[in-house]
Amino acid sequence: MSNAAIPPAVTQLIETLSELPGIGPKTASRLAFYLLRGKSELALRLADALHKLVENTRFCSICYNITEQDPCPICADPARDHGLICVVEEPLALLSLERTEQYHGVYHVLHGSLSPLEGIFAEDLRVKELEARLRAGDVHEVLLATNPTSEGDYTAAYLITRLKPFAARLTRLGRGLPVGGDLEYADAATLTRALEARQEL
């Protein structure tokens, strides 16, 4: 994207934007020129937000969620059940669970899933920290909410063997048919789980 007709400041912005996931050079130029032409205040607000993002966020020292204050608001909330820990792969999964407003325990973010083929082992995730929480505190239940994928199941299987000695109760998120789907498209694995978990009416 180097062009003598475009000032270096703009070129630099375009190149930086196109490093973002899902943004190619065309989208990056469009965004850059929008910021350039739009109200100057938008570009400054964006710059400010980015600055704050880098300066003010860190990991919560308890649950390893991304937070501005340590411990994070969830870990600091006395109304929550601190004996119930929900283990998720990524902060985005935590957000989805929070959106349900049905869960009142605390969390633990692993920051990834086990994938030895890609060189990701237990020591690369926040497993040790989770184990330390179980050793230290009064935890009555650990809810494994890893993704329902091969990688998530494998991570959960590992956590089960590792955490069994410490946790009073280990549970997993239920699994079955998604709301709004057609039965005919369901795969055997999901249908099997749905059959196993059928409910008394």
Partner: peptide, 27 residues
Amino acid sequence: EATTVRAGLQEDFTRGTYARYVVELVL
């Protein structure tokens, strides 16, 4: 359309690790 799902390799840590080793040697 999966013809064989192999659920036993998804939920057992030891077997799952061996299955990944099978793949690693092929790759």
